[in-house]
Protein backbone atom coordinates (compact mmCIF):
# COMPACT_ATOMS: atom_id res chain seq x y z
CA UNK A 1 0.00 0.00 0.00
CA UNK A 2 1.45 3.34 -0.99
CA UNK A 3 1.16 5.75 1.88
CA UNK A 4 -0.31 9.13 1.14
CA UNK A 5 1.17 12.52 1.81
CA UNK A 6 -0.34 15.43 3.64
CA UNK A 7 0.42 19.07 3.45
CA UNK A 8 -0.96 21.67 5.80
CA UNK A 9 -0.37 25.17 4.62
CA UNK A 10 -3.18 26.98 6.33
CA UNK A 11 -4.28 25.83 9.68
CA UNK A 12 -5.17 22.22 10.06
CA UNK A 13 -5.45 19.17 12.16
CA UNK A 14 -4.92 15.60 10.95
CA UNK A 15 -5.01 12.18 12.49
CA UNK A 16 -1.90 10.12 13.02
CA UNK A 17 -1.07 7.24 10.71
CA UNK A 18 1.33 6.27 8.00
CA UNK A 19 2.37 8.88 5.49
CA UNK A 20 4.97 9.30 2.81
CA UNK A 21 5.42 12.95 3.55
CA UNK A 22 4.03 15.34 6.14
CA UNK A 23 4.52 19.00 5.32
CA UNK A 24 3.41 21.77 7.63
CA UNK A 25 3.98 25.28 6.47
CA UNK A 26 1.11 26.95 8.25
CA UNK A 27 -0.02 25.88 11.62
CA UNK A 28 -0.69 22.18 11.93
CA UNK A 29 -1.47 19.63 14.51
CA UNK A 30 -1.09 15.90 14.13
CA UNK A 31 -2.99 13.80 16.62
CA UNK A 32 -1.78 10.30 17.38
CA UNK A 33 1.27 8.34 16.33
CA UNK A 34 2.90 9.05 12.99
CA UNK A 35 5.13 6.99 10.74
CA UNK A 36 6.49 8.90 7.79
CA UNK A 37 9.31 8.99 5.29
CA UNK A 38 9.73 12.70 5.62
CA UNK A 39 8.43 15.40 7.92
CA UNK A 40 9.00 19.06 7.18
CA UNK A 41 7.89 21.79 9.50
CA UNK A 42 8.43 25.31 8.32
CA UNK A 43 5.50 26.85 10.10
CA UNK A 44 4.34 25.66 13.44
CA UNK A 45 3.75 21.98 13.90
CA UNK A 46 2.60 20.00 16.92
CA UNK A 47 2.72 16.23 17.09
CA UNK A 48 0.59 14.67 19.78
CA UNK A 49 1.89 11.10 19.62
CA UNK A 50 5.13 9.31 18.90
CA UNK A 51 6.89 10.05 15.63
CA UNK A 52 8.96 7.76 13.44
CA UNK A 53 10.52 9.16 10.31
CA UNK A 54 13.50 8.84 8.02
CA UNK A 55 14.05 12.54 7.92
CA UNK A 56 12.67 15.39 9.98
CA UNK A 57 13.37 19.02 9.16
CA UNK A 58 12.24 21.79 11.45
CA UNK A 59 12.88 25.31 10.29
CA UNK A 60 9.91 26.83 12.02
CA UNK A 61 8.67 25.65 15.33
CA UNK A 62 8.15 21.97 16.00
CA UNK A 63 6.75 20.47 19.13
CA UNK A 64 6.74 16.70 19.73
CA UNK A 65 4.87 15.38 22.71
CA UNK A 66 6.00 11.76 22.51
CA UNK A 67 9.05 9.80 21.54
CA UNK A 68 10.85 10.69 18.31
CA UNK A 69 12.77 8.23 16.16
CA UNK A 70 14.52 9.39 13.02
CA UNK A 71 17.54 8.76 10.83
CA UNK A 72 18.14 12.46 10.41
CA UNK A 73 16.83 15.46 12.32
CA UNK A 74 17.78 18.89 11.10
CA UNK A 75 16.70 21.85 13.20
CA UNK A 76 17.27 25.42 12.30
CA UNK A 77 14.24 26.79 14.08
CA UNK A 78 12.99 25.73 17.43
CA UNK A 79 12.31 22.09 18.11
CA UNK A 80 11.03 20.67 21.36
CA UNK A 81 10.75 16.95 22.08
CA UNK A 82 9.07 16.09 25.36
CA UNK A 83 9.94 12.39 25.33
CA UNK A 84 13.10 10.49 24.43
CA UNK A 85 14.76 10.92 21.06
CA UNK A 86 16.55 8.26 19.06
CA UNK A 87 18.08 10.07 16.14
CA UNK A 88 21.02 8.72 14.17
CA UNK A 89 22.14 12.10 12.98
CA UNK A 90 21.21 15.39 14.63
CA UNK A 91 22.24 18.67 13.08
CA UNK A 92 20.94 21.66 14.90
CA UNK A 93 21.70 25.30 14.45
CA UNK A 94 18.55 26.44 16.16
CA UNK A 95 17.14 25.66 19.54
CA UNK A 96 16.75 21.97 20.24
CA UNK A 97 15.30 20.65 23.47
CA UNK A 98 14.84 17.03 24.50
CA UNK A 99 12.81 16.39 27.63
CA UNK A 100 14.02 12.80 28.02
CA UNK A 101 17.28 11.29 26.86
CA UNK A 102 18.91 11.40 23.45
CA UNK A 103 20.53 8.49 21.68
CA UNK A 104 22.21 8.63 18.29
CA UNK A 105 25.41 8.33 16.29
CA UNK A 106 26.31 11.82 15.29
CA UNK A 107 25.44 15.15 16.83
CA UNK A 108 26.48 18.51 15.50
CA UNK A 109 25.09 21.40 17.49
CA UNK A 110 25.78 25.03 16.81
CA UNK A 111 22.73 26.63 18.34
CA UNK A 112 21.36 25.89 21.74
CA UNK A 113 20.98 22.26 22.72
CA UNK A 114 19.23 21.22 25.88
CA UNK A 115 18.85 17.58 26.91
CA UNK A 116 17.15 16.89 30.22
CA UNK A 117 18.72 13.46 30.79
CA UNK A 118 21.58 11.57 29.07
CA UNK A 119 22.97 12.17 25.60
CA UNK A 120 24.67 9.22 23.92
CA UNK A 121 26.38 9.41 20.54
CA UNK A 122 29.48 8.20 18.76
CA UNK A 123 30.53 11.72 17.89
CA UNK A 124 29.37 14.92 19.59
CA UNK A 125 30.53 18.25 18.25
CA UNK A 126 29.30 21.56 19.51
CA UNK A 127 30.08 25.10 18.57
CA UNK A 128 27.14 26.51 20.42
CA UNK A 129 25.68 26.35 23.87
CA UNK A 130 24.56 23.10 25.40
CA UNK A 131 23.08 21.88 28.62
CA UNK A 132 22.98 18.16 29.41
CA UNK A 133 21.19 17.23 32.62
CA UNK A 134 22.78 13.79 32.82
CA UNK A 135 25.73 12.08 31.15
CA UNK A 136 27.16 13.19 27.83
CA UNK A 137 28.65 9.95 26.53
CA UNK A 138 30.45 9.85 23.18
CA UNK A 139 33.56 8.33 21.66
CA UNK A 140 34.61 11.79 20.58
CA UNK A 141 33.46 14.97 22.29
CA UNK A 142 34.62 18.10 20.50
CA UNK A 143 33.51 21.38 21.94
CA UNK A 144 34.18 24.88 20.72
CA UNK A 145 32.96 27.01 23.57
CA UNK A 146 30.51 29.78 22.87
CA UNK A 147 28.49 30.99 25.81
CA UNK A 148 28.15 28.96 28.97
CA UNK A 149 27.60 25.23 28.61
CA UNK A 150 26.90 22.64 31.24
CA UNK A 151 26.72 18.89 31.71
CA UNK A 152 26.52 16.77 34.81
CA UNK A 153 29.10 14.28 33.47
CA UNK A 154 31.11 13.81 30.31
CA UNK A 155 32.60 10.45 29.45
CA UNK A 156 34.25 8.97 26.39
CA UNK A 157 37.49 8.25 24.61
CA UNK A 158 38.58 11.68 23.38
CA UNK A 159 37.34 14.84 25.02
CA UNK A 160 38.46 18.11 23.56
CA UNK A 161 37.21 21.45 24.84
CA UNK A 162 38.55 24.73 23.47
CA UNK A 163 37.40 28.30 23.20
CA UNK A 164 35.29 28.94 20.14
CA UNK A 165 36.26 31.01 17.14
CA UNK A 166 36.50 34.74 17.65
CA UNK A 167 38.60 34.27 20.71
CA UNK A 168 42.03 34.11 19.17
CA UNK A 169 42.29 37.89 19.05
CA UNK A 170 45.45 38.01 21.08
CA UNK A 171 43.70 38.28 24.42
CA UNK A 172 44.83 36.05 27.21
CA UNK A 173 42.11 33.64 28.17
CA UNK A 174 42.32 34.28 31.88
CA UNK A 175 42.24 38.01 31.36
CA UNK A 176 39.24 37.53 29.16
CA UNK A 177 37.53 35.47 31.83
CA UNK A 178 38.35 38.04 34.44
CA UNK A 179 36.64 40.73 32.42
CA UNK A 180 33.97 38.34 31.32
CA UNK A 181 34.02 39.31 27.71
CA UNK A 182 32.34 36.95 25.34
CA UNK A 183 34.27 33.86 26.26
CA UNK A 184 32.52 30.57 26.56
CA UNK A 185 32.89 28.34 29.57
CA UNK A 186 32.01 24.76 30.39
CA UNK A 187 30.91 23.61 33.83
CA UNK A 188 30.82 19.89 34.62
CA UNK A 189 30.83 17.81 37.79
CA UNK A 190 32.90 14.97 36.36
CA UNK A 191 34.89 14.32 33.19
CA UNK A 192 36.36 10.94 32.26
CA UNK A 193 38.26 10.07 29.11
CA UNK A 194 41.39 8.47 27.76
CA UNK A 195 42.56 11.58 25.93
CA UNK A 196 41.42 14.78 27.66
CA UNK A 197 42.17 18.33 26.53
CA UNK A 198 40.39 21.04 28.48
CA UNK A 199 40.34 24.82 28.32
CA UNK A 200 38.07 27.29 30.12
CA UNK A 201 36.45 24.41 31.97
CA UNK A 202 35.33 24.17 35.57
CA UNK A 203 35.03 20.64 36.96
CA UNK A 204 35.07 18.94 40.32
CA UNK A 205 36.89 15.84 39.09
CA UNK A 206 38.74 14.98 35.89
CA UNK A 207 39.88 11.40 35.39
CA UNK A 208 41.83 10.35 32.36
CA UNK A 209 44.73 8.67 30.66
CA UNK A 210 46.58 11.59 29.09
CA UNK A 211 45.27 14.85 30.48
CA UNK A 212 45.91 18.46 29.50
CA UNK A 213 44.44 21.17 31.70
CA UNK A 214 44.60 24.40 29.75
CA UNK A 215 44.18 28.10 30.44
CA UNK A 216 41.08 29.24 32.25
CA UNK A 217 40.39 25.84 33.87
CA UNK A 218 39.40 25.37 37.49
CA UNK A 219 39.57 21.72 38.45
CA UNK A 220 39.12 20.36 41.96
CA UNK A 221 40.95 17.09 41.47
CA UNK A 222 42.72 15.44 38.55
CA UNK A 223 43.34 11.71 38.52
CA UNK A 224 45.49 10.60 35.60
CA UNK A 225 46.99 7.33 34.49
CA UNK A 226 49.68 8.26 31.97
CA UNK A 227 50.43 11.95 31.84
CA UNK A 228 49.26 15.31 33.13
CA UNK A 229 50.12 18.76 31.85
CA UNK A 230 48.77 21.86 33.52
CA UNK A 231 48.93 25.32 31.97
CA UNK A 232 50.18 28.09 34.29
CA UNK A 233 46.87 29.90 33.84
CA UNK A 234 44.90 26.97 35.21
CA UNK A 235 43.93 26.14 38.77
CA UNK A 236 44.10 22.53 39.89
CA UNK A 237 43.41 21.53 43.48
CA UNK A 238 44.73 18.00 43.74
CA UNK A 239 46.79 15.94 41.30
CA UNK A 240 46.77 12.22 41.73
CA UNK A 241 48.55 9.66 39.59
CA UNK A 242 46.31 6.61 39.66
Amino acid sequence: MAAQSISISGSGRVAGGEYAQVKISGSGRVEGDVVAQEIRVSGSGRFGGSVQAKEITVSGSGKFTGRVEADVLVTSGSCGIDGDAEVKELRTSGAQRVGGSFRGHYVRASGVLHVERDLEADVFTSSGRFEIGGLLNADRVEVKLVGDSRAREIGGETIDVRPGAGFSLGLSLTRGLRFGIGIGTLTVDEIEGDEVHLEATTAQVVRGGRVYIGPGCRIGRVEYRESLEVHPEAEVGERVKA
Binding site: R103, D122, N137, D139, G155, E157, G209
Partner: peptide, 21 residues
Protein backbone atom coordinates in the same frame (compact mmCIF):
# COMPACT_ATOMS: atom_id res chain seq x y z
CA UNK B 1 34.95 1.79 42.02
CA UNK B 2 35.05 2.49 38.31
CA UNK B 3 38.73 3.40 38.30
CA UNK B 4 39.54 0.13 40.04
CA UNK B 5 37.61 -1.76 37.37
CA UNK B 6 39.77 -0.09 34.73
CA UNK B 7 42.97 -0.82 36.63
CA UNK B 8 42.02 -4.43 37.29
CA UNK B 9 40.89 -5.26 33.76
CA UNK B 10 43.07 -2.88 31.76
CA UNK B 11 40.16 -1.53 29.72
CA UNK B 12 39.98 2.15 28.81
CA UNK B 13 37.37 4.78 29.59
CA UNK B 14 36.49 4.83 25.90
CA UNK B 15 35.71 1.10 25.92
CA UNK B 16 33.64 1.28 29.07
CA UNK B 17 31.55 4.20 27.82
CA UNK B 18 31.17 2.56 24.40
CA UNK B 19 29.92 -0.68 25.96
CA UNK B 20 27.48 1.29 28.06
CA UNK B 21 26.17 3.04 24.93
Amino acid sequence: AKKDVLKLTGISYGQLYRWKR
